[in-house]
Design a protein around this nucleic acid. Structure first.
Lengths: 128, 128
DNA sequence: ATAGGGGTTCCAGTAACTGGAATGTCAAGA
DNA sequence: TCTTGACATTCCAGTTACTGGAACCCCTAT
């Protein structure tokens, strides 16, 4: 059981954001101490990490919630799960493709910048 | 020269957002028609695409602005450019690592969900 | 020439934080 | 034991990056 600042640090999120994530019922602390301090166990910490990752790649809070819900809502039918998963799959494929393009762009940019001189080739040439 | 709806479609952004991106002086239309319509050329379109990509992976507007500025501000010294570029590099390395983790997580999730049945293995087991 | 589907600006609202004030708690040192 | 400083709490206001809507203008095709 770790307190909020340790959880925040381990998850790579600001403490404020961890509190916010709890306030909107996305990831709650596993319990509170006698004096009301949030206490996170390993599972809630993993959820925070998952939230940081999904959020940092542009998924909405509600998308995160859906993904996390899949784990919790054991009453959900196999069909529902599959449909939701398939939806996300398309989404992820696009993201993956997009990320590749961005990494290509940035990689070109970085290599062009590596020297001390401004590259001759205009940076935006690389942006497809 | 294409109008805003074509530019928006080509860039994968809502028209509203393209206008917003212009309003905050991030990417302006190359010119306006006689009647005030925004007109985008190839270069401004490429910038919009670049902005969508960077934004969709969690870079702030100001980070986008810095990257785009590197292209425009030809008065910038080689040193400045290099320092800024090196800063972004670290950033990108982290993102890349992070993305790999997220893709691993999601890939596990997806494969676990592919069948009609809820997987036996709890989803969050995969979240490192 | 006119109807419909664009475009424009401006202003208000939303999502996801983020900062700050007021207050409570805990652990370490005098 | 007391105190002091770094942490925690809630609540409320402010910011960033859109997003929707009203009111109005423009262009194309019947």
């Amino acid at each position: 059981m770790i307190n909020i600042s340790k959880a925040a640090k381990a998850a790579g999120l600001p403490v404020k954001t961890v509190r916010y994530i709890g306030n909107i019922d996305l990831v709650a602390a596993q319990q509170r101490s006698a004096s009301g301090y949030r206490l996170y166990d390993d599972r809630s910490l993993r959820k925070l990490i998952f939230v940081r990752r999904t959020r940092s790649f542009g998924f909405s809070i509600e998308a995160c919630r859906d993904l996390l819900d899949l784990y919790h809502d054991s009453g959900r039918s196999g069909f529902d799960v599959k449909r939701l998963a398939e939806g996300r799959l398309t989404n992820i494929d696009q993201k993956q493709h997009d990320l590749q393009s961005l990494l290509d762009d940035l990689s070109h940019l970085i290599h062009a910048w590596r020297g001390d001189q401004r590259p001759e080739c205009p940076i935006l040439e690389y942006l497809a």
